[in-house]
């Protein structure tokens, strides 16, 4: 457990250091939202009803572009070999790295969401459901992203491939996430069930992806 914490802490530290890229993801997220807003135009009503889908889509895109950071650097500089032979279960190492990715990349996006929601004219009562759907649903992004980055490990500059690999896995998160955010904003009874589906996706990710990620790492470091 102490070792997994050490891996988690190191990954979070590296993400916020020079070249770590955690803050670039926030910038990319904000930029995408602004581009969407400009493309939709000054119609406040349309903007505010598009706010949840725009924020969920932009967050997912920003996450996709950051997935290759989860394992690629460790693979290239040899530290992944050392983590493999450190003695911990490799699937737990993968879980620690996915968690670090969520904290360093997706949590900052979620924290930036209220500011961007303001820009899009998101109604006050819609903030809580949107944020709740992101907090519950985005861990699945990091988990499936770790798996995709492990699959593409031996290919260099694979972020486009990783994006293509993860898109079908992550669209359910967007669909249920936006459904939950919208239902919550309307005061609809579907809010609860939609959040449950999101939670199910994250829990499925926790159960299944670490072992699959570990297998993919072993295959690609062989």
């Amino acid at each position: 457990m102490k070792r997994l914490m050490a891996i988690f802490e190191r990954d979070v530290t590296l993400a916020f250091r020079t070249g770590g890229g955690a803050l670039n993801s926030v910038a990319f997220f904000a930029l995408t939202v602004v581009i969407f807003a400009l493309a939709i135009g000054p119609d406040r009503a349309r903007l505010s009803e598009s706010a949840a889908p725009i924020l969920w889509t932009a967050a997912t895109l920003a996450a996709m572009l950051s997935f290759d950071r989860i394992l690629q650097a460790d693979f290239e500089d040899g530290s992944l070999d050392a983590l493999i032979e450190s003695g911990d279960l490799l699937s737990l190492v993968a879980l620690a790295k996915a968690s670090a990715h969520w904290v360093s990349t997706l949590l900052p996006l979620i924290l930036a969401t209220p500011v961007l929601g303001l820009l899009l004219g998101l109604p006050a009562h819609a903030y809580f459901p949107l944020m709740a759907s992101m907090v519950i649903g985005t861990p699945a992004l990091s988990l499936f992203g770790a798996l995709a980055s492990a699959l593409a490990l031996s290919l260099r500059r694979a972020s486009m491939l990783i994006t293509i690999l993860t898109a079908p896995l992550l669209t359910p998160a967007i669909i249920f996430g936006v459904a939950a955010a919208n239902a919550g904003a309307r005061g609809d009874a579907l809010f609860g069930p939609a959040l449950m589906l999101l939670a199910a996706m994250t829990l499925f990710g926790v159960l299944v992806t670490p072992a699959a990620t570990a297998a993919a790492i072993r295959f690609n470091t062989d």
């Binding site: 590296l14 040899g78 530290s79 070999d81």
Partner: peptide, 27 residues
């Protein structure tokens, strides 16, 4: 324990930080 061609040294970490990370990993 294996040391390959790659050093596993992180550009953004100081030598001291790298050492204490590996100390944690190997308890």
């Amino acid at each position: 324990v294996f040391l390959g061609h790659a050093d596993g040294v992180k550009a953004a970490l100081t030598a001291r930080e790298s050492l204490s990370f590996w100390r944690m990993i190997y308890s």
